[in-house]
Each structure stands twice: as structure tokens, then as C-alpha cells.
Design a protein around this nucleic acid. Structure first.
Lengths: 340, 340
DNA sequence: CTGAAAGCGCTAACAT
DNA sequence: ATGTTAGCGCTTTCAG
């Protein structure tokens, strides 16, 4: 269990060639005689040799690794991150790059530490998926020497390239769908103060205005994207003297909380109250009734981000500093015409 | 944005000292004059210098990093992994170690590749959290030079140290609870073929036997730990000529699927059918009715694993090759006495 | 097609 | 308290 690692030199010695030839074989460089290559490959096989990453990285100055910084992986509000990760992981794999995921627990100091670690010898590019932009790490990132892309980022404006989702249109689509069904009192369950929240909210308000519907502050409540917060928000809404006939929650998790609150009061969805979520996490399709929601292209977001950042590490120019991915309304069974 | 990274040598040159002194300051070694230290610290501050990880790792032979290999982070059946990660992350942070999470997408080749990458210069210790043990990577791990611990692992017996959860007792507790409530027809919704599954199943059967209840093959069905599979399993069970009055699903996600199936048939939980889950993921407390379940000490599992593996990298002996963490029955609202 | 030399940026071990 | 000398394991460069 504790046997000293084999090195390139040893392989070279055993195979009776120079280190360089071994190195060339490992890296698939051409210009190595077939029999030499075979002999070396055999030795590698027998010894179970694997190249030391630190040495390779140090010598080559490249890591073929992309660092991805996320707040957490477990909490409900970060459930959608898994989908992004899947897209990123698949894309990285296709190009034979590695993905290194770091969590920060929403801790400012850790955010900086993790990012610095990645930027200095651990990764060739960094994807920042932190809802809470902090000046501490942003200033570091802005003049670091490796490419960085922010994903679906917070409020602080930065010159860093970014990939975002079209939140404004998302806010519009959900609201318009409910308006089209004939709803007049449409509630909005927002999230924490962030760009995503503000943009979705503005889409909601815009559509109401366009349709001559009043913007009622009572109908705009806040959660933190989590299921319990959606539950609480719904309680408040349904306690209103004149409760809404439709609720637009800007995360699926909060929508589940709304379902829960409605269920406990004996209200049926969509007969008594229509419900639209946001995200389209897999679970949206499992609940009963199946949730009408705004699909974010999360998988594609991860994919795009990886492809883009890899091309950046190759020195390619970015096709536009800001990229925006489209959203889509997915109509399922949680929305219907108002009864009265 | 593309400025060449600063090196230790430059800091030394600017501060007018040798590289070693700078190195000592960075690593908090004592034996550096206070004024020299201050001067160096200033230069570091101004230049924004951060040590290159690869170089440091290569030179020191240590990384202060633990690699954690998991299948996926997004799918429903791996939801519980987030909790383990949280525990591991916190524990690593307390000791100023880094955690490096690698996903394998349940792909055998990737499992090996990731593990090899970690074992050769990227990490000082590896935590393997893969439900599907594969000979490919196991043989590699068994004679690698760095410590490895398997967590909640698959079926293949290995000499590797492991930390597991007391699945057998978990299977017993859930079943006994239902027996105690007076249930006679208790169904078991298992998972994929794995140690966790087999041990929980044996606990279930043991309790039935002890209580003189028949073991009915019709009442033992399979899922894959996911919600949809729980739904399907429940459909089969509830279609039985003589359906069960209680269902024990060995993941909370599958239990949610059972709830869904029951709901669609107008069956009430727990009045018409009692339900017990396994895991106690946060969501178990959010659904309606709140789910009675077997709590796995997931956070603690992550913590324990990190502390153990770090002490292994220090050359400390492992306190027993196998460690088993206790489970606990959490009674909520999804279980009750049978009505008839 | 193969090899020898140099060095990536850092730290360990030993001076001074 | 500080500096000097090696060398980690690999790749790059250039020569054979």
C-alpha cells in the first residue's frame, strides 16, 4: 500500500530509451518508431506507471484542467447547479480536459482562497458560478493571467466575460402564459436580491403593464429559492383578503413549497390556483400535478461555458463579452384557466 | 488579463532577500526577523503574489488536498452525496486542507482516470464514494502509494479501509417500526444490487421472521433509488390483489415516488398506507405528510472520512479497518396504525 | 527518429 | 536569521 511512485526515468531505464522518447509516447506525439512505442507501452502497462500531474503541469505550464467554483452542492437552492455541472463535465470530457469543482460554502474568504488556488497552477481557466459577487475575488480575477468566465452572476458589473440566462424573457414568458389563460391576479414569488431576481421581476411587471393589469405590491413576495421559503410565501399570499388565482415562483423548489401550502389548505392546482415555476429541474416532472415552468438551459450552460473557456485558454478571442442563453416555457399540468 | 504570473524569485529580488526567506514567510515558519517578514509581506501584498501550486506540490511531495471521487452530483439518487460533501468540506477546511471533487458519470473508464490523476500528484489521499465497485480501479488503488478509504461502498470485498453506515440495522429499524404499529403486509422497495441494498433487505427480512410474518416475494420490489423508480414500484405494489398496508422504501427519493403514486390513486398517507423512507435528506421534512425515515449520518460520514484520511496521510494507523456509523429512526407523519 | 541539456517554481537540507 | 545547493518529475529546445 505504500510503494514509492514510479517515475518517467525508471520507465526509460527499463525500456532502454531516453526519458524524452517515453514522454513522446505518453503524449501521443508522432515520430516514434512503432516497435519502440510498443516496448515502452508494455513497460508502462506492467509497472502501472501514471505520470505525475504536478510535475507535468509545472513543466508544461498547462494543466488541461478547468476550475469551477460553486457555493454548495447540497442545498436546495443549488440543486440546479448539478445540471450545469453535468453539461460542463460532459463537455470537458469530450475534449479530454478535467474539471475541478471547488465549493466555498458561501464564504467570502474561501471564495478567494479557492479561486487563487485554481489560478496559480491548478487550472488553466476558471468558471465562476457564485450568485454573490464579491469585490474581493473579482479584483483578483480581473488581473489574473488566466481566463475567467462568470456564469449567471450576481449584481456587481464586471468586465469579465459572462454567460447568462435570459431571465427577463423568462419572467415575461411565465407571466404572459398566466395572462393568456385569463388570470388577473397573478402573484410573484421572488428570490434573494440578485440579478436573476431583478430581471425576472422586471419581466413580470412589464407583462402586467402591457396587459393593463395593476402591479399590486401585496402580490409580490420574497423567498430565498428554497422550498420552505416558497411555502411561507404562499401562506402569505393565500391569506390575502383577495388571494391570487395564479402564482409565479421563480424557482421550482419554491413552487413545490407553494404546492405544499395549497395542498394543506385543500386548494387544488390548477383548479383553484395556477402555478408556474422556474428552472425545470428533473423533479418538476415528477410532482403531481406536473409543474409548468420556465426551462433554463442548464446543461447547455455548462457545456457552452466549458467550450468557451477552453477556447480562451487556447488564446482564441471570445465571441462577444456577454452571452445570453434562451429560456423556454414548458407547459404542464399546474396551470389552467381561472375558475370564476 | 494576461499578465505573466509572479514568482517567488521575483518577490525575493524585490524584497532584497533570498528565495528561502520568502518561502519561510509564506509558510509561516518561525526564525524570520520581524522587519524582514513585514517587508516581504508588503511586497507580496503589492504584487498580489500567490504561490504556484504545482511547483509547491512537486517540491514538497505533499498537496494538502484530499480527492473525493463520486459518480454524479445532480441526479436524484445522488442527492445524499451533497450532505457527505458538506461534512467533508467543513472538516477539510478546519484542518486547512483542500477538497477536490471528481465526478465519473458512473463511467468505468473515467473512474480509473480520475483516481489515477488524484493518486499521482494531485492529492495526498483519496475518498472513494462510488456505489459500483469496479475491479479496474480497485486493483489500482490496492497498491497505490497513497491512502484510500472507501465510503458506503459496493459489493466487492477489498482490503481497503472503509467507512460504512449500519444498513442492516437501518433495514431492521424501519421494518420494526411498521411491525410495532401493527402492520402485517409490509412491502420493501429495494435499490440496485449493492451492499447497501442487500444489508437493508436482510434487516427487513430478519424482522419479519422474528415476528412470525411471512416473507412474500410479491412485496419485495426494486427501484434504482430515484423518484420515478419509486413511483413505478408503488404502482406494482398497489395493483396487487392484496396490496400492502405499509411500504418501506430504501431511499427518500423513492419514498416520494410512492407518495406520488398513492396520491394519484386517492390513497391517503398514512391512513391508507404507511410509508418509511431511508436517508433523511432535507426534503423529507418538507413534503406532506412529513416523511418517517431512517436517518443516515451523512454529514458525519463526510467529516469522519476526512479526519481519518488526513491522519492516514500523516502515517497514523487506522483505528480498525472497517468503521460503521449508526443510523436512527426518525418518526414523522407518514406512518400510522393500519386502519382495518 | 532519438537523446542530452536546461529549467519550470518551489522546498529540504544544509551551510553560514 | 538568512543564504546556498540540490533536486522534485516532467517537458521544451535543440542537437545528433
Amino acid at each position: 500500500m505504500t510503494k514509492p511512485a514510479i517515475t518517467l526515468s525508471e520507465i526509460a531505464r527499463i525500456a532502454g530509451v531516453s526519458k524524452m522518447t517515453v514522454s513522446n509516447v505518453i503524449n501521443g506525439k508522432k515520430g516514434v518508431a512503432e516497435d519502440t512505442r510498443q516496448r515502452i507501452l508494455e513497460v508502462i502497462q506492467e509497472t502501472g506507471y501514471v505520470a505525475n500531474r504536478s510535475a507535468r503541469n509545472l513543466a508544461s505550464g498547462r494543466t488541461r484542467t478547468i476550475g469551477l467554483v460553486v457555493p454548495k452542492l447540497n442545498s436546495n437552492y443549488t440543486l440546479y447547479i448539478g445540471e450545469i455541472l453535468r453539461g460542463a463535465g460532459d463537455a470537458a470530457d469530450r475534449q479530454h480536459w478535467d474539471l475541478l469543482v471547488c465549493t466555498t460554502s458561501d464564504d467570502e474568504e474561501r471564495e478567494l482562497r479557492r479561486i487563487q488556488a485554481l489560478a496559480t497552477g491548478l487550472a488553466d481557466g476558471i468558471l465562476v458560478l457564485l450568485p454573490r459577487a464579491e469585490q474581493t475575488y473579482l479584483s483578483f480575477l480581473q488581473d489574473t493571467h488566466i481566463p475567467v468566465i462568470t456564469l449567471d452572476h450576481g449584481l456587481i458589473e464586471t468586465p469579465l466575460p459572462s454567460i447568462d440566462v435570459d431571465n427577463h424573457t423568462g419572467g415575461r414568458l411565465g407571466t404572459q402564459h398566466l395572462v393568456d389563460l385569463g388570470h388577473k391576479r397573478i402573484a410573484f414569488v421572488g428570490g434573494t436580491y440578485s440579478r436573476a431576481h431583478l430581471e425576472r421581476l422586471s419581466g413580470y411587471q412589464e407583462v402586467l403593464r402591457e396587459n393593463g393589469l395593476p402591479i399590486d405590491p401585496d402580490l409580490m413576495v420574497h423567498g430565498d429559492y428554497s422550498q420552505p421559503s416558497g411555502f411561507q410565501a404562499a401562506e402569505r399570499l393565500l391569506d390575502l383578503p383577495e388571494p391570487p388565482t395564479a402564482i409565479f415562483a421563480i424557482s421550482d423548489a419554491m413552487a413545490f413549497g407553494v404546492m405544499e401550502a395549497a395542498g394543506r389548505r385543500g386548494l387544488r392546482i390548477p383548479e383553484d390556483v395556477s402555478l408556474v415555476g422556474f428552472d425545470d429541474i428533473p423533479m418538476a416532472n415528477w410532482v403531481h400535478p406536473r409543474l409548468t415552468t420556465i426551462r433554463q438551459p442548464l446543461y447547455q450552460l455548462g457545456e457552452t461555458a466549458i467550450n468557451l473557456i477552453i477556447s480562451l485558454t487556447d488564446g482564441d478571442a471570445l465571441p462577444g463579452q456577454r452571452m445570453m442563453l434562451p429560456v423556454e416555457l414548458v407547459v404542464r399540468n399546474s396551470t389552467g384557466k381561472p375558475e370564476k
